[in-house]
Structure formats: C-alpha cells, structure tokens
C-alpha cells in the first residue's frame, strides 16, 4: 500500500498559559489518504484547530509524529516548513485573510511570490486559478467590492494557485450565510471529485461536515469518533 498523505501518530500539543499548561491535543492518531475529503468536527477548544495548525506546518507538536507524504515534519526547520506550506498546502480561513486594497488577481498571485514561478508566468497562473472558482470577471476588484462568498472563492483560488496536494480549510463557511456556504462546500466537493484534491475541513457545523466523505470528531484533545474507522481498521490492520 502506498504511503498515506497524512500520518499522525500519538500527537500531543501542550501550551503554557501563564503558570498553567493546557493540553490542546492528547495523543491523536490518524491517517488520511490522497484524494480523501475529511471533515474534522468538535466543540471549540476540542483541539481541532490545533491539529489543523500542525497539519498546516504552522505549529509543531509537543510530542508524537506527523508525516506528510512520508516526510517527518517535526524534524524540519522553519524555512523548509515555509517551503512545504508554499508548494504543497493550500489554506482557506474563516475570515478569508485577503489583502485589502489589493485586487483579486493580485491576492491569488501572492503565494507565487515565494515560490519558483517566473514572474512572467505568475499572472497567467493566477488567472487560471481564478477561472477555476469562476471569478475571472472579478479579477480587477478589491475585496471590499466583493461579496463574502466571492471573497472566499478568491481565497480558495489563492490556495489552489500552487497546485497543492492538501487543502486545509478552517471554518471556511463560518462567516457566510447558508446559501453561500452551500456554494463553497459544493465547490470543495467538486474540486475533490474532479481533481482528486485532498481536503481537510474543520467545522463545528454538522451539516457542512456531512458533505465530506469522512468525519472525525474531537473532544478534549482526543479523537472520539471517526466515520471511516471501521473500514480503515479492516484495511490497514497489521
């Protein structure tokens, strides 16, 4: 069997909050294969965001292992993790995090600054990514001229522009109304089906989670339910 895209073993993350310590993750173990569409749910403070930060190479675990495509991330330095974030991971945030007073196409172009794409190709690649989310006609607009749903689609195009292996979406519909939420989820669904993009989506909304193929539930820093667990247990038991 090929190496899973994500292999997390016995992951813990402890924060110091003043004198006290908080255990945000208490030994999470899971694997995600290429092409999966996984939703991670749980109440706030359940550890799902901490897991996302570690999966996104923004944070490092206190203990445990995280292998992305077979590479142990915990051992890498800051620059290498920055490169992995740039080339292999796309981020979508709850609050979009677009640069204000900067056009949609320039926002989409942003990750290409830090990568090896020649300057002359940046614009066409950004335009292609905008086309994938259906916003070619809004390329010259700045975020304040776009609706919430459009802004999130620009953010999605930015996440896709470097052709990542993994898309991490942290409450991508948290700031959207239910109709636009459905549009965004449908778009993610479609990206997963047609391009085989691996998507990990964090949400506290069961309806959004239902769109995914697999739902992992967190509580108090531990996995309490994994809808694919029985199948996985059968498939990968030693």
């Amino acid at each position: 069997m090929t190496e899973p895209l994500i292999a997390v073993t016995d992951l813990t993350r402890r924060y110091a909050v003043g004198e006290a310590t908080v255990d945000a993750l208490r030994g999470a173990t899971l694997t995600i294969d290429r092409g999966e569409f996984v939703a991670i749910t749980g109440a706030s403070g359940s550890g799902k965001s901490t897991l996302m930060n570690i999966l996104g190479c923004l944070d490092r675990p206190t203990s445990g292992g995280y292998r992305l495509s077979g590479v142990e991330i915990a051992a890498l330095d800051g620059d290498t993790r920055a490169e992995i974030r740039n080339r292999r991971i796309g981020f979508v945030f709850q609050n979009f995090n677009l640069l204000s007073r900067t056009t949609a196409i320039e926002n989409v172009e942003l990750p290409l600054f830090y990568g090896p794409t020649p300057l002359a190709e940046q614009r066409t690649r950004a335009a292609d990514a905008l086309a994938r989310v259906g916003l070619t006609h809004r390329a010259r607009h700045v975020p304040s001229q776009l609706s919430g749903g459009e802004q999130q689609r620009v953010a999605l195009a930015r996440a896709l522009v470097n052709e990542p292996e993994l898309l991490l979406a942290d409450e991508p519909t948290g700031n959207l109304d239910s109709r636009t939420s459905a549009d965004i989820v449908a778009m993610l669904r479609d990206l997963n089906r047609t391009s085989g993009l691996t998507i990990v989506l964090v949400t506290h909304d069961p309806e959004i989670a239902a769109a995914a193929d697999r739902v992992i539930s967190f509580r108090d820093g531990s996995i309490v339910a994994d809808s694919a667990a029985p199948a996985r247990a059968r498939g990968s038991a030693p």
């Binding site: 923004l58 490169e83 600054f113």
Partner: peptide
C-alpha cells in the same frame, strides 16, 4: 500583523 501571518502561512520565510 494579519498580513504578515498570512504571508507566512502561504510560504513566506522569516527572511522574506
């Protein structure tokens, strides 16, 4: 600050 955080998330290194 948010912009810096975003740039880092999408691949900016400390030296960038």
């Amino acid at each position: 600050t948010r912009e810096i955080g975003l740039r880092m998330a999408i691949g900016a290194k400390a030296r960038h």
